[in-house]
Write a protein that binds this DNA or RNA. Structure first.
Lengths: 350, 350
DNA sequence: CTTACTCATGTAAACGATTCCATGGAATCG
DNA sequence: CGATTCCATGGAATCGTTTACATGAGTAAG
């Protein structure tokens, strides 16, 4: 395999391993002479330092772990890409792990990363355990281990970790105001699972927005999904059968919206005329949709950048403040006036 | 931090480190008695083995690297997910790296992985260097290092590495036959960059399919893109200005299709009536599109599974055969009869 | 009862880097 | 010119595991 070690380099260069090591890791106390000899020997032999030996001794790995729910969710793949690019710029390798919205896989990944002694963790937390209302055991271990950690996108209440989150209050206010001014009275909301802080934030901001615009919240118009496409599909049908006949709907994430849009298309519901749709997460699929879907979203590249920056501050021993990005509402043709919506009865296009 | 080592566990359990190690790594020669003592001590102390020390000595890391172009491309994120799940089932951690269609980033990632001594590599190769017509230096190093490697999705000609690829000949044949039977004579093709083997395979299969169906290939109907959304957008405009007025188009990957569909929508071109569209890669965005887009695609979960399996065979010292998945054509409403296409002149909807 | 063999255990040597410490020569200072 | 400082260097310890080898107890076979 790659049997060439620093020892080989040292003897080829005619110096000790200590000197070779110093040259290769940029230590100042080296003569130009030995620097030249070691460098050329290393290149000659194709020396490639063994990262585990290095970090076993030096206790740093120049790597961080990013734990997300699912790479297949475009929201998270965009976020992952942003984190990776900014970490890379700071000389850090990023390990991406999928929790698949599953606490066991999350813990598994965290355990592996702890074993590998990554220098820091960026986590989209999966939420507290349903029964115990506590973070999982592994999460507690992470938190008590003292390894630099920050949360991104979501936060955990009661856990003191810097978090980079998004605030959608303003955007939802605008969205609801827009719908209201177009004559929509019954606005449905497809939310996320209660273990996700984003789900709570979004629904409560929605309720506030309703109140601000003279509308009243109605639990019968609230569908609790799980942020996955399948539950979006269920929500789509739930909407059509809802006795209140809502004329507009706000969906709390892109995968659920994707699931829902597919069902509506199959059933012939015309988004943007039969039904006004606004969704969270400004991802490609929403923009190529015909009609384009109005979204509430934030800059993921920015979020990734802030996450890496905050993490580096923690790694440097500082205590960064939690930060909030302000989400933006973008009106698009998926939203129309409520009048067009009267046709909802004839939901299946011939 | 996590200062608890196997030494601590051993002394807490009242045995030697050797025994502790044997118990913890499941070595058979251990007594039930010491097994019990060590295990409880380990749990008690929250022992978490240091992966670098372990693999420094044992020369295995139980991890593999997956090099793809870009996680944000849904095709690759699906593939990444599949590889990860199957690797995980085999007890292997997967490191995902983005090349961003950039040889420098590819080499960077490979260097890091080589340093970390991953047990194997699954690579979507970026292609040969434009000038030298050779794999990059780092790629050569990977290949000569003897580290188990397989290619997936793409292959490199002249490089002897087992590859899992897709064969689209049949699917393209069906696709072209379908178009032809609907009266389409001028079928445009938006291909990929020539450094990608998939681009070559797809275009040459397309040419064959034309011939099989009594149509002739025409370079003026071939747009060479780069697999990214922006070049899809260019292709979309190119098509509209093409003097041959093609009535149907086949796009060689999803990101380009996404870029193109967006442009067509903005310009009011009605896909499925003004223009028949077929695209490679069966991803969500194509299915929620209205109308749904006909696709040529293959089972990515299957591809991921085969990749992991082939890699494990290489790791076990075997020499697996290259394998080909057969792509499938799925007809959807984005394809219509050519007659409807006469309206192409009035391309901008009022 | 001896011999041979199995088996759990401990001691110590790896693995491949970094880094502390001692050394000796050159440079600087009074 | 002698004393002090500086600096590049090499030897050796170290990081936390695994594992080759030696040991000694217990067991089965003769």
């Amino acid at each position: 395999m790659n049997a060439v070690t620093i020892k080989d380099v040292a003897s080829a260069a005619g110096v000790s391993v200590a000197t070779a090591s110093r040259v290769l890791s940029g230590h100042p106390a080296t003569s130009p002479d030995s620097r030249a000899k070691v460098e050329s020997a290393a290149k000659e032999l194709g020396f490639m330092p063994n990262a585990q030996a290095r970090s076993l001794r030096s206790t740093k790995t120049d790597s961080i772990a990013l734990l997300i729910s699912d790479v297949r969710n475009p929201y998270f793949s965009d976020l992952a890409h942003a984190v990776e690019q900014h970490a890379r710029a700071a000389g850090l390798m990023t390990f991406i792990g999928n929790a698949n919205e599953d606490a066991a896989q999350q813990d598994d990944f965290l355990a592996t990363m702890l074993s590998r002694r990554v220098d820091g963790l960026v986590i989209v937390p999966q939420g507290l355990n349903e029964e115990s209302n506590q973070p999982s055991e592994m999460m507690n271990r992470v938190l008590s281990s003292g390894i630099p950690t920050i949360f991104v996108d979501r936060a955990l209440p009661s856990v003191q970790v810097p978090a980079i989150t998004a605030n959608s209050a303003q955007a939802l206010d605008e969205a609801v105001a827009t719908l209201q001014s177009l004559g929509h009275q019954n606005i449905a909301f497809v939310g996320g699972p209660k273990h996700a802080s984003t789900a709570l934030e979004r629904y409560s901001a929605f309720e506030t927005a309703l109140a601000n615009n003279g509308l009243h919240a109605d639990e019968a118009l609230h569908f609790v999904g799980d942020f996955q496409p399948a539950s979006g599909a269920l929500a789509a049908k739930w909407l059509l059968e809802n006795p209140a006949k809502p004329s507009a709907i706000i969906v709390a994430d892109a995968p659920m919206a994707i699931g829902a849009l597919r069902v509506w298309r199959e059933l012939g519901v015309r988004v943007g005329s039969d039904l006004s749709v606004i969704t969270f997460d400004e991802v490609d699929a929403m923009l190529i949709h015909d009609p384009p879907i109005a979204t509430i979203g934030h800059d993921l590249s920015q979020m990734g950048k802030m996450a890496v920056q905050a993490l580096r501050e923690v790694m440097a021993g500082q205590k960064p403040e939690p930060e909030e990005l302000i989400s933006k509402f973008t009106l698009r043709p998926s939203v129309a006036s409520a009048k067009a919506t009267q046709v909802m009865e004839g939901k299946v296009r011939p």
